[in-house]
Amino acid sequence: MKTYKDYEAINLSINGETRKVIIKHSDTLLRVLREKLGLTGGKPGCENGDCGACTILLDGKPVKSCMMLAIEAIDKNITTIEGLSNTEIQKAFVEYGGFQCGYCTSGFLLNAYALLETHPDADDDTIKEWLQSNLCRCTGYEGISKAIKTAQKKKAGI
């Protein structure tokens, strides 16, 4: 049995690096990433699991980092937006106006990235199912939708 008390020094594997960090058990992963590790790409849009602006990848799957404890991420691979570079989906977001204010963008990008890695041939229903997890107030989702479809084609070499 593992037992944790008070402050805990833990190792987290983030974007391919091991980061040592001191946390409290009740610290959410979002707050630890932002406030202890300076990874502010994920945002506290609601801290209630509704908006998806805090989405990160945990072992490749999108999760809302405001809804989990940092301590649960031990022995998992965390990917934040800071760990995503020059991907097709990032390029397509730039090209097709997948963002305006940029606040929801990290969450959308990570979710969309995971989607295209998991289901390279995702149809409209699957795209919708995944991306309904995130809110955007600026774009009306048009640019996001175009970007995903473009990145999907690029990845498939079309």
Binding site: M1, K2, Y4, K5, D6, H25, S26, T28, L69, I71
Partner: peptide, 17 residues
């Protein structure tokens, strides 16, 4: 953010839990 502290345990068996 959760403002209060709690202990965190992760047992490996249901008996232990």
């Amino acid at each position: 953010m959760i403002s209060y502290d709690f202990e965190y345990y992760r047992p490996d068996t249901y008996e232990g839990a």
